[in-house]
């Protein structure tokens, strides 16, 4: 479904991605793990068109989408719940969700998306007239994911959805990611919480300083000695 082929991305002189390749197949949950600064967010930025890759290609459903604009990418069926939520704090929950469906014109489909999001996150329905800035961290994370679902994506990119959340909320978010996936949305999940991510993923990639150093089934990765040492807190 998504195929990244040898992409390089720079921030000025900083060479952040040094030839990354990865695949996501329809229906999967794929996780991208790695420590802080490894290039996980940069990878997602290069897929969504927020950042321009300097070389390499990104393909989605048989089309070359390298360096397409963010709005074209959203229309094609990829959306991102960014690191740090990035909700619109002074807008209501409902307006935030409405913005998630900004590129869509199909009224009926949009209504179904609202229903889907409110069903997944009843908390958002209760707070739909509240401004996003007044929500708790967990609720803002739900809103960021809900907003990304409003474009009815085939591929959902999640950047560190568990960041800064209490353990019970982390568990809840991961369960919700699984339900979203079961509803037919393919997921590429970026996490520092490698343990949790590998427990729900089909496959995983390990990223280190801009390079993919390992890729395997999630099970195999969680049993891998070096992964356990580096990312799983030697459980």
């Amino acid at each position: 479904m998504l195929s990244i082929r040898n992409i390089n991305t720079h921030y000025g002189n900083i060479h952040a991605l040094k030839g990354i390749s990865l695949e996501v197949k329809q229906g999967e949950i794929v996780t991208l793990i790695g420590s802080n600064g490894a290039g996980k967010s940069t990878t997602l930025g290069s897929i969504t068109g927020l950042l321009k890759a300097t070389s390499g290609e990104v393909w989605f459903k048989g089309q070359n989408i390298t360096n397409a604009s963010p709005s074209e990418i959203v229309k094609m069926g990829i959306s991102l719940s960014p690191e740090g939520r990035e909700v619109f704090p002074a807008l209501t929950v409902e307006e935030n969700l409405q913005l998630g469906a900004f590129t869509r014109k199909d009224k009926k489909g949009i209504k179904e998306s609202y229903e889907r999001v409110y069903e997944l996150f009843p908390r958002l329905f209760e707070r739909k007239k509240q401004t996003a800035g007044t929500l708790s961290g967990g609720e803002q994370q739900m809103l960021a994911i809900g907003r990304a679902l409003m474009s009815s994506p085939q591929l959902l990119l999640l950047d560190e959805p568990s960041l800064g959340l209490a353990p019970n909320l982390v568990l809840m978010i991961f369960e919700l990611i699984q339900s979203i996936n079961k509803q037919g949305t393919t997921v590429l999940l970026v996490e520092q919480n490698a343990n949790m991510a590998l427990s729900i993923a089909n496959r995983g990639y390990v990223l280190e300083t801009g390079k993919v150093t390992l890729s395997d089934d999630a099970k195999a990765l969680s049993n891998n000695e070096s992964v356990r040492k580096a990312y799983l807190g030697h459980i």
Partner: peptide, 23 residues
């Protein structure tokens, strides 16, 4: 209006507005 909503979104967070597909 929709363009008004887009204006308010850009005002608050340009990067996120971009992600929503707002020009």
């Amino acid at each position: 209006t929709k363009v008004g909503l887009a204006m308010r979104a850009v005002e608050q967070n340009q990067k996120a507005a971009n992600l929503m597909g707002i020009d």
